[in-house]
Write a protein that binds this DNA or RNA. Structure first.
Lengths: 171, 171
DNA sequence: CACGATCGTCTTGATAGCAGACGATCTGCC
DNA sequence: GGCAGATCGTCTGCTATCAAGACGATCGTG
């Protein structure tokens, strides 16, 4: 049987397309902030204060810790956040918002909210909330299960002995 | 008022987290294919045959045309696709699947389907379909409106006169 | 106190992506 | 017909971005 089993919608493509649109809109909306959309997310997480250390922030955002260093360097030199030594663990730094940072965050959230609304415009308000809710559930689940890679991926790992992608021809 | 207006779920973070999980799973599932997940998507689009030229494919997938060249080079040298001259426009190339490509695509779709199911596991089947549907609607809308950038982004463009992001310090 | 592990930083090497130029070709206009 | 401008795919070179590794400082455990 050479006929692919499903001609239905491609989740991967839809995700990618929405992501691209979101990134474009977000980049335009918060472009003035160091680090772009990710800079905003750092601010947002720092405001909630749930993630204290840089590493926790980085993992939650899915970036390398070295990248987080640059990100925070820029945000700090812009006067939006401060690195304070964690009294409980002097290796770690606590990321706290400055007053200017809090104000900036407030502004950014408004802009971003407008961009999101436009992105989700094809859906009516009820559907928008459904989409947000479903995405959030999937995100929180997969995020907390980071150390627990899915079984399917696991068993497929074995077949990856050969180099997956040709490392782009030399020139 | 320095209190951010919304403490609710962050669409950007949720999107990013789901995207990361999906990419990780997809990369593991189809890693053996040149170009990884994007290679699969090229195959998938080529099979449907809706997008004929390389450029149309590239735009639909959101990649640069130069990248599409490398992508197709790898896929072609792997014997999965062929570049045929378009009889109607000898500048353009038509991307068609070989038999091996069709077979490979069939296999990949099964793997990917399994990975997607696992990703969406926290949702029950009905919710999964809802999510797919909503994402698809947003994606198709934003994708077709590519040439028509959203108004909010447009009016914000003006404020971007200053360099948005510090170009990462020289070393 | 000694040992290994962890956090944040810095340096370095690799890589993907983009801008630009190019030849080949199409289109429209004279 | 023939010329100018635009378009498609390719190639080249540069840059930003990322990840791996080493390092000092610190934790905690025996």
């Amino acid at each position: 049987m050479t006929t692919p089993p499903t001609a239905e919608s491609d989740l991967g493509w839809a995700l990618g397309a929405v992501m691209r649109s979101y990134l474009r809109a977000a980049h335009d909306a918060v472009g003035a902030v160091p680090g772009g959309p990710r800079g905003y997310q750092v601010l947002s997480m720092a405001f909630r204060g749930e993630q204290r250390s840089q590493l926790a922030l980085a993992q939650h955002l899915g970036v390398d810790r070295t990248v987080m260093t640059y990100l925070l360097d820029d945000l700090e030199s812009a006067g939006l956040v401060e690195r304070r030594p964690d009294p409980a663990d002097r290796r770690a730094r606590r990321i706290v918002l400055t007053d200017a940072g809090t104000e900036k965050l407030c502004d950014l959230e408004r802009r971003l909210r407008a961009a999101e609304d436009e992105l989700l415009d094809p859906l009516d308000p009820a559907e928008q909330e459904v989409l947000r809710g479903l995405l959030d559930r999937v995100a929180t689940r997969t995020a907390t299960a980071t150390d627990n890679p899915c079984a399917v991926a696991q068993e497929m790992q074995d077949e990856l002995a050969a180099p997956a992608v040709t490392p782009r021809r030399r020139r």
